[in-house]
């Protein structure tokens, strides 16, 4: 079900919205509030027509991490009333549970609000950052690193295919053999990645990157009426919620 389209929003709106959601998540410390915020974020993402199938996969990866942090918090925070006592030793306290909840909720909110950004294209965020008066080099490098992760991943994958196709068994090997191979191949992959980054910097310079202190742009993002409304309303609401 799609009520409105996040895809149509101006990227600046999404950046501001995400920043506000994360600020709220970090600065407010009540479980009920954070829970409400999480529900709100989820609704936003779902009703906004974000492609959830791929997105959920990325959150799933985080689940394990959040769960283990939850457990650790439970055990290591000692405050409030004891909830679980085994053999005279207090294992879990109410304070521990509360802190663990807060931490997990915060992480979930961060993860889901990041999903907001996935409804746009890298190139539009780059433009948005530039139009928000962030220097192009910084904006470009931020975006390039985001863009580069999948490329480097693919390149590393290519090397893994190459290794296996030259007869090195990885799928059926013992973990020791695997570890050994990974370590062996780590260095060349790193060297490759470094070379690649350097080559990219060169390729950019050879096409006149930073020839002038300024730069022009083919496209320009224009704020529509509802974008402007969002840009004003979201920070105001955030402020109110923070002060209240």
């Amino acid at each position: 079900m799609t009520l409105f389209s996040l895809v149509k929003w101006d990227p600046r709106c999404k950046i501001i919205l995400m920043a506000c959601l994360s600020t709220l998540a970090m600065l407010r410390g009540e479980v009920w509030f954070l829970f409400g915020l999480l529900v709100f974020t989820c609704l936003l993402v779902m009703l906004g027509g974000a492609e959830l199938s791929g997105a959920l996969g990325q959150v799933k990866g985080l689940l394990g991490l959040i769960f283990s942090l939850f457990i650790i918090q439970c055990f290591f925070t000692r405050s409030g009333e004891p909830w679980l006592v085994i053999g005279g030793f207090t294992l879990i306290t109410s304070g521990g549970i509360e802190l663990a909840c807060i931490l997990s909720l915060r992480l979930f909110i961060l993860a889901f609000s990041a999903l907001l950004l996935l409804t746009g294209e890298v190139r539009d965020y780059l433009l948005a950052l530039v139009q928000m008066k962030i220097p192009y080099e910084i904006a470009f490098m931020t975006m390039a690193s985001v863009h580069f992760i999948p490329i480097l991943r693919e390149e590393a994958l290519n090397v893994f295919y190459a290794i296996q196709l030259r007869g090195c068994e990885l799928q059926k090997a013992s973990w020791r053999k695997k570890l050994h191979t990974y370590l062996e191949i780590c260095l060349p992959i790193l060297v490759g990645a470094l070379k690649r980054t350097r080559a990219m910097a060169l390729a950019m310079e050879a096409r006149a990157f930073r020839a002038y202190p300024k730069r022009t742009y083919l496209r320009r993002l224009v704020l529509k009426k509802n974008d402007k409304a969002i840009l004003v309303a979201v920070p105001v609401i955030t402020l109110v919620l923070l002060v209240y």
Partner: peptide, 14 residues
């Protein structure tokens, strides 16, 4: 088959 098993019978140049 695993990639390694394939690789022993099929050579590949990308």
């Amino acid at each position: 088959l695993t990639l390694a098993e394939v690789g022993r019978s099929v050579g590949y140049v990308m």
